[in-house]
């Protein structure tokens, strides 16, 4: 089990700054999710850690040893690509054996290692098949077995679930989580899907434009977003951001409730909205509305079934949020005001 440390890492292609000063450190055996939209630099960061790209500046350390300049074949980092990149002309068995051969691992240990990886991923029946004869989920398991068999210090997953059907994806996600916990290998998981990042990651790194906006547990990101970008990115629906002069008020849809008597402004904030749209979600309602005389900043409120039904579109309703659920951001810098 290894600790990965990235120090002031930069990568530019000509004038384009793909990664612009990244600092992060994993904990031993942790699953660190790297969340960002396409173009945020997360894939470039991964490729530098794997050794497929050379950093323009900065350092990458695995267990306090710098690996910059060391080719991928001499780093013990395994990577699973989005397409799984199985070797098409080789059987599943040959695919899994390939890293052992390539890394000149003594033959005596092959059988034991292969058996171990195969049993963990239960792909014993697939060993003699070619990749074209496998389903998406099976391909993923084979790719994982191939990564696992060399007992890497570090796992990198590059959007490994995005090629799967929605139904298979949920199962595969749980399996990935389980696999990571059982092997205890430090893992970086790259994704643009916040559900995956929040559901899988022990901690989540939010990236935008080549820099880290926040690192934290899923709960920290959700409850205490570091800036307006994270607040507006994490959560579905994302945090309501309401203009208050030089500050921006942030409050989650589920923290707004119908105002009741006795809820004073000491205990929290009130918000009077004219509802313009309602969405029925079964157990609850999403109410969309605007503050009166204010056409900017639509606000979403999540209400239980009976309360949501009572809201009429076009009418004014008053909502209340407890003080502890209300965040303020500095409008100029975008940062959270503690």
């Amino acid at each position: 089990m290894a600790v990965l440390k990235v120090e002031n890492l930069k990568k530019h292609y000509g004038k384009i700054q793909a990664v612009n000063g990244i600092n992060l450190e994993t904990k031993e055996g942790e699953l660190l999710a790297l969340l960002g939209a396409s173009g945020s630099g997360k894939t470039t960061l991964m490729r530098m850690i794997a050794g497929l790209e050379q950093p323009s500046e900065g350092d990458i350390l695995i267990d306090n040893v710098s690996v910059v300049g060391i080719p991928p074949r001499h780093r013990n980092v395994a990577m699973v690509f989005q397409s799984y990149a199985l070797y098409p002309h080789m059987t599943v068995r040959d695919n899994i054996t390939f890293p052992l051969k390539a890394r000149r691992i003594p033959k005596e240990s092959w059988d034991k290692r292969i058996e171990w990886a195969v049993s963990i991923l239960s792909i014993g029946k697939l060993l003699d098949r070619k990749p074209t004869k496998l389903s998406g989920g099976e391909k993923q398991r084979v790719a994982l077995a191939r990564a696992l068999v060399r007992e890497p210090e570090l796992f990198i997953f590059d959007e490994p679930l995005s090629a799967l059907d929605a139904q298979v994806r949920n199962v595969a996600r749980a399996e990935l989580r389980d696999l990571q916990k059982r092997t205890g290998i430090t893992t970086m998981y790259v994704t643009h899907d916040q559900l995956e990042a929040l559901g899988l990651g022990d901690r989540v790194v939010v990236m935008k434009d080549g820099v880290i906006r926040q690192i934290g547990t899923p709960a920290e990101l959700y409850d205490k977003p570091a800036d307006l970008f994270v607040a507006g990115f994490i959560g579905n629906p994302p945090m309501n951001l309401i203009d208050r002069g030089d500050k921006v008020l942030g409050v989650r849809a589920e923290h707004l409730m119908l105002h009741e008597k006795g809820q004073t402004s000491d205990a929290g904030i009130t918000l009077t909205l004219r509802a313009d749209q309602r969405e029925y979600l079964g157990s609850e309602w999403l109410i969309y509305g605007f503050e009166d005389n204010e056409i900017r900043g639509r606000v979403v409120v999540r209400l239980p079934q009976d309360q949501g039904e009572a809201i009429k579109t076009g009418e004014l309703s008053t909502f209340f949020a407890e003080r502890r659920h209300v965040k303020y951001f500095d409008k100029a810098s975008g940062n959270l005001i503690e």
Binding site: S83, A85, A102, R150
Partner: peptide, 17 residues
């Protein structure tokens, strides 16, 4: 696909392999 070559590099293969 380039990913195949990236994968081979990561798996530890040199030029001739």
């Amino acid at each position: 696909p380039q990913e195949l070559f990236d994968q081979a590099q990561i798996d530890g293969a040199g030029f001739f392999r």
